[in-house]
Write a protein that binds this DNA or RNA. Structure first.
Length: 525
RNA sequence: GGGCUCGUAGCUCAGAACGGUAGAGCAGCGGGCUUUUAACCCGUCGGCCGCGGGUUCAAAUCCCGUCGAGCCCGCCA
């Protein structure tokens, strides 16, 4: 049984009175949203569908929806290395109130700059959710009651936090952090007093400013309090979160107590999950494992990885592993193996012919076509695939265009993978220029072999991969050479390196005229 | 120092909730094809379930201990 179903069954059984579950996820958009963050949403999505499925299976009333809370009201913690120096001035301000750091500046705020590309990725992944922004929740007054309760029960809150974490809170700690109307920071003001009826707090900021903060967007609750408040405000019943929150003394434990003792709300069903670790060989060193971290440059933004791997595979990568186990993600050769495995066991990728051409095979085809889509089509046909043709002439173009489009879409993933992650061992460059230097260094018999290859091409008869393969062996025996040497000569003539994809297939998928000229020219050297 | 999670084949993972003969895929090896450098198909090898103890007729599974990896108990999410 898939883990998501086991979890869903337990949730449904535990909360029999609940007919509508709310599964919540949330991320602070302080930098590009990466694969590790995505795990939370994919888990949440899987559990949401599983709850609906379990409800249907057991004939119970159990519906579920997925909501996503973007913590846009959180402050910028520090100037990350990817930010320009002037962002030093924005440290401490809420992410929703800071300009887009992208030089192109297409988005309205810092938060949007990272959220919107990520939402596009969620679309690609086919994940549907309701998006809520923390700054809007605060500004629209949804937090007002929670803030009132928090301020009036401050002593109990600080006792809970102190007990759970074992740390001492300072005298002027407040569950409410005002947003200073002079310096714009949400981290620097101290609450001096408040009036519940007026829904206002009085503060003094480090910057010297004294002001009044409204409970409607004039500040936010401290994280540990905010989390519990949010459960109640939004009726959350299920919440996946990174394992760092899950440890005793961590924020889930404070949240659990704040929720039941202060807000009188039943704690959501927790789904702690492990991180995704990036495993990558760097400069030929053996593979190293590192936690995804923006500051260390070891994170891969979701929208970037989705250029090199089809969404269904990314989902599979995450769903096949139980949440409490960490995932080692290696985007180099193991990623190709993962895609391979997906195509073999789960299902093809793409529609029509695109589905039949495996990703692995496309890796070769794309390189032979050198990224040119018109050549891509020729190479595919020479490789033995038949693009489908329909009966009516008018439809023909359309259908064929469709088919080719699907292939190109898949090929784009391959191209990006090759460019960004592929190891040198699978890469090759079809040489348009004759590699003169390298060919001159070949032995006499190797050159003879290339001349014989040219002769084979005289009559212009195309050969299948098998036929080519046999020809190579024949030539090897006529020239009295180890066949390995012939392979080498062929690869050097075409790719300027001594090895490559299976020679028969390679030759069969290349243009005959090109091959003929190439081998003739090589033989003349 | 205190705590949490994980450890199963060379690799990536199932199996653990509820104890009942350890499972896949990849890689490897062999073959299809007296000869295949990297897209195909078939077959096959592969295990002290991290280690030590306990409970039990029976333990990968439950309990205790221990080692290793990662994380939490400051800030921040």
């Amino acid at each position: 049984m898939h883990w998501s179903i086991a979890i869903a069954q337990e949730i449904v059984a535990k909360r029999k009175e609940k007919t509508e579950h709310v599964v919540a996820t949330g991320i602070t958009p302080s930098g590009a949203i990466h694969l590790g963050n995505l795990r939370e949403i994919i888990i949440a999505d899987a559990v949401t569908s599983a709850i609906i499925g379990v409800g249907a299976d057991e004939g119970v009333e159990a519906d579920a929806k997925l909501i996503y809370i973007a913590d846009t009201f959180d402050p910028l913690r520090r100037r990350y290395s990817f930010l320009p120096p002037e962002y030093e001035n924005h440290v401490g301000k809420p992410l929703s109130e800071i300009p887009d750091p992208d030089p192109e500046g297409r988005f309205l705020s810092y938060a949007d700059s990272f959220l919107l590309p990520f939402f596009d990725s969620l679309d690609d992944l086919g994940i549907q959710l309701e998006i809520l922004r923390a700054d809007e929740l605060y500004k629209s007054g949804q937090y007002v009651d929670a803030i009132k309760v928090a301020l009036s029960r401050k002593e109990e809150l600080s006792r809970i936090i102190e007990t759970v974490t074992g740390r001492r809170l300072s005298e002027d700690w407040s569950p409410f952090n005002p947003l200073c109307d002079a310096c714009g920071r949400i981290t620097a003001a101290v609450v001096k007093d408040y009036v519940i009826g007026e829904e206002e707090a009085y503060y003094e900021c480090e910057c010297g400013n004294k002001g009044i903060a409204s409970f409607r967007g004039g500040g936010k609750l401290a994280w540990r309090v905010d989390w519990a408040a949010r459960w109640k405000i939004l009726g959350i019943t299920v919440e996946p979160f990174g394992k760092d929150h899950a440890a005793p003394g961590g924020s889930f434990e404070t949240g659990r107590r704040i929720s039941s003792e202060i807000y009188n709300y039943e704690v959501p069903y927790p789904i702690p999950f492990e991180h995704i670790l990036l495993k990558q060989e760097l400069n030929g060193e053996k593979a190293k494992v590192a936690a995804m971290s923006s500051s260390r440059g070891t994170n891969i933004p979701v929208h970037k990885i989705l250029k090199a791997v089809p969404p269904e595979v990314l989902k599979h990568l995450i769903l096949r592993v139980r949440p409490e186990k960490h995932i080692e993600f290696n985007p180099t050769l193991p990623l190709l193996n993962l895609i391979d495995e997906y195509e073999r066991e789960i299902g093809g990728i793409g529609r029509g012919i695109a589905r039949e051409i495996t990703f692995r095979h496309l890796v070769t085809i794309v390189q032979i076509a050198r990224g040119d889509s018109s050549r891509l089509r020729d190479v595919i046909e020479r490789s033995g695939y038949v693009l489908s043709v329909s009966d009516s002439a008018s439809e023909e173009c359309e259908e064929e265009g469709e088919e080719l489009k699907e292939i190109e879409k898949k090929a784009r993933y391959v191209e990006n993978w090759l460019r960004t992650y592929a190891p040198e061992s699978v890469k090759f460059d079809l040489q348009y220029e004759l590699p003169v230097e390298e060919l001159r260094n070949l032995s006499g018999p190797q050159k003879d072999a290339l001349r014989l290859m040219a002769q084979e091409l005289q009559d212009g008869i195309s050969a299948s991969a098998d036929e080519w393969h046999n020809k190579i062996y024949t030539i090897a025996s006529t020239t009295g050479m180890d066949v390995k040497e012939v392979f080498k000569a062929i690869y050097i003539a075409l790719l300027k390196k001594p090895s490559g994809p299976r020679a028969g297939w390679l030759l069969a998928s290349l243009d005959l005229e090109f091959l003929k000229e190439r081998f003739e020219a090589a033989g003349r050297l």
